[in-house]
Write a protein that binds this DNA or RNA. Sequence first.
DNA 1: AATGAATGAGGCTTCATTCAT
DNA 2: GATGAATGAAGCCTCATTCAT
Lengths: 193, 193, 193, 193
Amino acid sequence: MARPRSEDKREAILNAAIEVLAELGERAPTSKIAKLAGVAEGTLFTYFSSKEELLNQLYLSLKAELRQVMMLHYPLTADLKAQMQHVWQAYVTWGINMPKKRKVMAQLSTSEQITAESKQIGMQSFCDMTNLLQEQTTLGLLRDYPPLFIGSMLGALADLTMGFMVQEPENADRYQESGFEAFWHAVSTPITS
Amino acid sequence: MARPRSEDKREAILNAAIEVLAELGERAPTSKIAKLAGVAEGTLFTYFSSKEELLNQLYLSLKAELRQVMMLHYPLTADLKAQMQHVWQAYVTWGINMPKKRKVMAQLSTSEQITAESKQIGMQSFCDMTNLLQEQTTLGLLRDYPPLFIGSMLGALADLTMGFMVQEPENADRYQESGFEAFWHAVSTPITS
Amino acid sequence: MARPRSEDKREAILNAAIEVLAELGERAPTSKIAKLAGVAEGTLFTYFSSKEELLNQLYLSLKAELRQVMMLHYPLTADLKAQMQHVWQAYVTWGINMPKKRKVMAQLSTSEQITAESKQIGMQSFCDMTNLLQEQTTLGLLRDYPPLFIGSMLGALADLTMGFMVQEPENADRYQESGFEAFWHAVSTPITS
Amino acid sequence: MARPRSEDKREAILNAAIEVLAELGERAPTSKIAKLAGVAEGTLFTYFSSKEELLNQLYLSLKAELRQVMMLHYPLTADLKAQMQHVWQAYVTWGINMPKKRKVMAQLSTSEQITAESKQIGMQSFCDMTNLLQEQTTLGLLRDYPPLFIGSMLGALADLTMGFMVQEPENADRYQESGFEAFWHAVSTPITS
DNA sequence: AATGAATGAGGCTTCATTCAT
DNA sequence: GATGAATGAAGCCTCATTCAT
């Protein structure tokens, strides 16, 4: 199969997949995705060799987007807490504004169709941050947990927090703050608090 | 009187469903489930009117089992931290020993097929604990978060912790401890720490 | 299989079959019929060896009932037209008052499941009348058509008429009269009109 | 451009449906129809979205064909009786030559699967003729019956007649004539006879 | 490369009938 | 005899993928 010509179409398919997956879960038919993307059913398969491939690419694309969002305007010189708050804030804002993307990312994260390799790569989204942590931990600002463990906590608690924000929009701001506060106490040493 | 409907068969189907769902995800065919349960395809539908019904019943049954596990030997008179540690411990032990059940419960939790009602009921598993929290919060032992928020954090962090325990069995004990420690710092007031 | 004990149950099943067939057509499941009849699914098969058997028995039973209705108060000594009008009237009255029975009879009449033998027997419902015709024809009161042909016309035109009566209840009486009038002109010799 | 949808295949499926329905009634499985049509099972559903849709389309197609047959060489300038005889003749000839089509049309006419809308449309097959009747009635050539009533009688009596023709092929011609004669006397005023 | 008709395996579910109780 | 759970063969339909155009 030759290199597909149009990057636009690839994007269109991925975006359509988000819509349809958000609505129908993994049972989303490729035909519906193609239709929403404005391409023929067969065309989808020139851009993605199989549905599984499409799902994996989508997963990676979402992870990459999220990573990019978190790294945008990253306060490299601020203190650790500020850095983490930036990441938290970026993730939550993205997740709240793009609920379908968040939903689909969560879906795919537990899907049988996402290969171990994809999950591996996806996890590297957090690598940069993890690297920062490595240093900070040794400085005694953070509890002595593996950086990946800390990063994952941030993800898990932020996800949870977003759920509550959506459930009770009137208290969204408080959840947003409380969530980060809880996370920070979970991972920082008492001195830093 | 005709043959009575057998509770054993119902259990067999639910257990078979766990196996097959753990392996294939929601795409698990009812035929495979029936076969593994040792009943005819049609029999499955005398116990569960549809696949959706089966999944919802399974979800509720898992939630109920988990709740029971957590409530077993519950240290009603111990201090709050000990109580929470009990719940944490019970959940993690169950999850580690029954990895398929844990996997399936996670899957179903994000499934489109589980009705809002089921999720509602399932959530009440944590109600008892949540009620305890209600009191404790007012005593100033816990940060001023909604009890459900705290309960959900416990669940989320325990889940996360189990993931790491499975990933690095050699450090399982440390993760188990660190996980709870992190959770406790996340939700308790400084004084209590 | 021994002779079933209760004639009541047999009747109940036949009556239930009428209800369910009227609503669902031939796809009416035996289980629904049994339920409505207030007997167990299996019991149905002690009264009728198969669904096909049930349908055939029902068909015959309806034909027999219709025949009985038509023969009730039959004006043996009246003139031919009056006799026919009696039959017409009896049929139409029955059909209008028992729309489900009429519907089911029509359904079964075109069903693949009704054996040739049943149809043969069912046709004899009209035999008595047909026999009368045999004589009358030779008297020159009726056109020289086979009696069965005449009898069938009566049935067909009465059916048609009932359809219109149901469709336009406000003109029911007129259709009823016109229908018979048309039939009578169709089969009688000019002299008799 | 992809392969265009083939009118031939659509026809093949409709024709196959006639064969299988004539033999098995409405229980005719779509798989048998597809096989006989020489297409894959799934293909049937690209031409007809469901079995019900197929049956309705088939019903309409048969009605349309019948209408066309009746209107071919229609003697517009002949007298009323000749016109009706033409219609009668056309219908009976078609029905005798295409017994399966006739059988299936009769089946579908009483089927639960044919929508009211389809029946509505199908009925318009007779509209042209009915319109003619409207005028003729006012001229006193026909009895004062609603045109639709008269048209339906023609259909019913012709159907009946065909049944006898098939039953007793040796008397087919006589039935054919007698049938029309009966119909004509049923609907025309004495003067015209 | 793009299209969408064609394919057919496989899924969920129904249901007539059997048979253990 | 009555019951209704058990059975498994079909049935309708979906859908990932292929391929003729």
